[in-house]
Design a binder for these strands. Structure first.
Length: 244
DNA sequence: TTCCAGGTCCTAG
DNA sequence: CTAGGACATGGA
């Protein structure tokens, strides 16, 4: 809920509980010890949202192939990839372009409709008050292109093919595409490379350049590159910058 | 005041 | 394919 994934932008934290309006109903989620608690959320929703079917033991075995990753796993044990609505994920990560977490959160909250969701028809709305800057055009134009089962079609494709199609959307480049694939379309092999991941790969593995970085990730952590990315993201932000 | 932020797009070499 | 700059806005 606080790891730079879509829930960080979409849910509001209030004393260790997380809340949002979802399809017009206020829902709440929190954790007590090992237990996950919720209000007005079905078990089925939680299972999908938190990807409770992912076998973390098996995933840790694959991505914990060296000392650095073992440490990251130990520090953030239990951290999960979440599964989110594709359009909300897409809009959120277009907002993230060359921005920062606090501002992304503000922008995303501004986009929420009366029912608490991000409307599909953003293209027909006045968005000037959201202060998206140059991102407004991307959001508006992309919202026009994703109507009519766009994401359902993409989800059926393999990772590379799906990625190519997503990158055609305005404001969606390699990084945002990988975020969409990982956080909403269930492609665990997606490996979003942002400034922090680039930094992590250089500091921890002496690897530089997008091409080499991606090749290394696949070689080491396939088919769970996305999980490796999430643990690396948290680890490098703690080690070299943001976050307590 | 200046710099930077979970990048993308466009133009050159 | 790699390199460099523009791009809106706001918080530090």
């Amino acid at each position: 809920m606080e790891s730079g994934q879509p829930p960080e932008f979409l849910w509001i934290k209030n004393k260790n509980k997380y809340t949002r309006l979802l399809n017009g109903r206020e829902v709440t989620l929190w954790q007590e010890g090992e237990e996950i608690k919720s209000k007005r959320l079905s078990h089925n929703y939680l299972k999908e949202f938190l990807r409770l079917d992912d076998n973390l033991r098996e995933i840790y075995e694959v991505i914990g192939s060296d000392m650095k990753m073992k440490k990251a796993i130990k520090e953030f044990e239990g951290l999960r990839i979440t599964r989110n609505d594709p359009w909300e994920t897409t809009a959120s990560f277009i907002c993230s372009i060359n921005s920062n977490i606090p501002r992304i959160k503000k922008n995303v909250q501004c986009l929420l409709g009366k029912d608490g969701n991000i409307p599909l028809e953003l293209y027909s709305q006045d968005l000037s008050y959201v202060k998206l800057g140059f991102r407004e055009r991307y959001i508006r134009e992309t919202s026009r292109l994703i109507t009519g089962g766009f994401f359902e079609g993409i989800e059926k494709l393999g990772y590379y093919e799906a990625r190519e199609k997503l990158i055609k959307l305005p404001g969606v480049g390699p990084k945002v595409a990988d975020c969409i694939l990982l956080f909403s379309l269930g492609k665990l092999e997606a490996f979003p490379v942002d400034v922090w991941i680039a930094r992590a790969m250089k500091r921890y593995f002496k690897i530089e350049g997008d091409k080499k970085v991606r090749a290394f990730a696949r070689k080491e952590w396939h088919p769970y590159e996305g999980y490796a990315q999430q643990y690396l993201y948290m680890k490098v932000r703690r080690d070299f910058g943001k976050v307590r």
